[in-house]
Design a protein around this nucleic acid. Structure first.
Length: 561
RNA sequence: GCGCUCGUGGCUCAGCUGGAUAGAGCGUCUGACUACGAAUCAGAAGGUCGGGGGUUCGAAUCCCUCCGAGCGCACCA
């Protein structure tokens, strides 16, 4: 919890006590104390903290909100709260002004904790798994995967910062129908390279990258699969291609700053019989029935729109069946919470997946699914329909080459996953310097530059005493900067609770802005020794917090640029 | 047709699960480098929060309805 939150908590308790005291003394009449908020008002002039307690109590107490507020203030204990003044405002808010000296504790706290500043214990060591990207290994990673990668990775880092034990996982869809189509497509490409007229089958993959893949195999083994039995040939091709594609995916994600703890194979669930046994278990519980030769899950019992097929009439389990087994497996591995990041085109699967968990006796609330709207690509002013099957898409690799890892990641993280983003590639290229990420990185580089100017020894100097800081850093710009830094642990808590890393992107943007404003109105390297030391400590703290946030977002914090 | 999600200045988006006068960036306009990085800063213009009802002290936020957009509604994944 942040310094600020601790102060607010104390005042909140005192407010509740004030109400209770007023009640015992017969000044206020009410039953249960209603829930009220004590929060930072948007408007500066409304003080540092404001509460609506007077308003929420007014009805029960049968007095005007302002009267109630007046009574509350009279009974409020303000010792050890930093409260400097309280006033009634507007329809009945009580506004508190704090003595700004509380801010003097921020710098020592930031510098003492360093990289760990911002860490909170919301998670209390609970195990959380974040599964993201999980792209089909039938092609290259595209823009939508890029968004998922940026979001999932920073969410995972955020949760770590919030005290969870986090595991990043990639689910490899290396089984099922699509792999069959993949095999047929590979085979067609292979035969094409050998001069045959082999069309890519319906439902196949038209991506040009498959030509390269097949060429790689050709370079190694020549035409040795040409006269082989088709089934066997397809198997060789797929095995080779899967390994190659997964290697590329791994490599690309790594370059994008994402490293997974676990790569989980769908095929392994079939091989071990776990898919089958999971279906049997659900059948025993009576959630499965047979119709028209297929096995159906009664997912409508759990809020799904219709029942779903889990085993086709040909005896082959569906993707859904494997996915159920997979999620069951996750929980059996001991995760308290499981978070999936899915494209919004899969929203219809949420209810049935949660339903399947319920059918297995797993609390569906332990599975959280973040839906991410798709990225629409604009090129030459037109929407480019991206599709892996058609082979028409911009790859993550190209994106990194064009706009850079930092800018690409930040662009995605800045936005709420629920908003459909339009990505104009031409614009992204031409305006790359306008990406807000540079605004933040520039602030960081500037901070480093000041510290360089000051000389390493001085920059490493011991932290000035709080009393000294509170007397010296008293300008509006300095206080705003300190306050923002003081908020950081709370921002982590909130963002982690809501699973919204984009809040941190907004936060660091604000922080960088406050620094730039400070920089333009005050000089750090002044003659006066005490002030100079105090401001250098402020600079070091700011640099630290910016670096911490960028670290979570997977964006580099350059010392020069 | 049914369901999910989303409609916020010209453009791209925030808005802390109901708070006071709705905020940034880009673009436009006016200013600031003979001191630590001008990739910066200060200021201005620009809004019926898609429309209409409702809930209450109070709504961009919650409910209903209509309009518009995206995505789903396979024995595909």
């Amino acid at each position: 919890m942040s310094l600020y939150a601790r102060i607010a908590q104390k005042i909140e308790r005192n407010l509740a006590e004030a109400a209770a005291k007023a009640k015992t003394q017969g000044e206020l009449d009410f039953g249960e104390l209603p829930s009220f908020v004590l929060e930072e008002p948007r408007e500066r002039q409304h003080g540092d903290l404001a509460t609506n307690l007077g308003m929420v109590l007014a009805k029960q107490a049968k007095r005007s909100p302002r009267e109630v507020a007046e009574i509350l203030i009279r009974h409020l204990e303000t010792d050890n709260t930093w409260i400097e003044s309280s006033e009634i405002a507007g329809p009945g808010f009580i506004n508190f002004r704090l003595n700004p000296r509380w801010l003097s504790a921020v710098i020592p706290e930031v510098l003492r904790e360093g990289q760990a500043y911002g860490r909170v214990n919301l998670g209390q060591g609970k195990k959380v798994q974040v599964e993201f990207v999980s792209a089909n290994p039938t092609g290259l990673l595209h823009m939508g995967n890029a968004r998922g990668a940026a979001l999932g990775d920073s969410l995972a880092s955020l949760l770590q910062m919030a005290g969870y034990e986090v595991s990043r996982e990639f689910y490899i869809n290396d089984a099922g129908n699509q792999i069959h189509n993949f095999a047929l497509s590979l085979e067609a490409r292979y035969l094409q390279l050998l001069g045959q007229d082999a069309p890519i089958p319906e439902g196949g993959y038209h991506g040009e990258d498959l030509l390269d893949t097949v060429q790689g195999l050709m370079d190694r083994d020549g035409d040795k699969y040409l006269n082989m039995d088709a089934g066997l040939r397809q198997e060789f091709l797929v095995r080779y291609a899967l390994a190659e594609k997964m290697g590329q995916i791994r490599e690309t994600l790594k370059d994008f700053g994402v490293e997974y703890d676990v790569w989980f194979s769908e095929q392994s669930l079939h091989d071990s019989g776990f898919v089958r046994s999971t279906m049997e278990d659900m059948e025993k519980k009576g959630y499965i029935y047979e119709k028209e030769g297929a096995l159906w899950l009664k997912s409508t019992l759990f809020g799904d729109e219709k029942d779903e097929v889990v085993v086709r009439s040909n005896g082959i389990p569906t993707y859904f069946a494997a996915d159920i087994a997979y999620h069951r497996n996750k929980f059996e591995r001991g995760f308290d919470q499981v978070i999936n990041i899915w494209g919004a085109d899969h929203h219809g699967h949420v209810a049935r997946m949660k339903g399947a968990m319920a059918a297995l006796g797993i609390d569906p609330d332990r599975l959280q699914i973040i839906l991410m709207q798709l990225v629409r690509l604009i090129q030459n002013g037109e929407v480019v329909r991206m599709s892996k099957r058609s082979g028409q898409y911009i790859t993550l690799r190209e994106l990194m080459d064009e706009v850079g890892k930092d800018a690409a990641r930040f662009t995605f993280i800045l936005r709420d996953p629920d908003s459909a983003v339009e990505f104009d590639l031409d614009l992204a290229k031409s305006q790359s310097a306008d990406n807000p990420v540079y605004y933040i990185q520039y602030a960081h580089a500037r901070l480093c530059s000041i510290l360089r100017q000051a000389g390493d020894t001085e920059a490493e100097a011991e932290i000035p005493a709080e009393r000294e800081l509170e007397l010296l850093l008293d300008s509006q710009e300095e206080r705003a900067l300190l306050k923002k830094m003081a908020d950081f642990p709370d921002e982590i808590s909130l963002a982690a609770r809501l699973l919204e890393p984009h809040r941190l992107a907004r936060y660091v943007l604000d922080l960088a802005g406050l620094f730039h404003t400070f920089y333009n109105s005050h000089r750090v390297l002044v003659e006066e020794e005490g002030l100079r030391r105090a401001r250098l400590a402020l600079i070091r703290s700011t640099r630290q917090v910016i670096a911490n946030v960028l670290g979570i977002l997977g964006v580099s914090a350059p010392e020069r640029m």
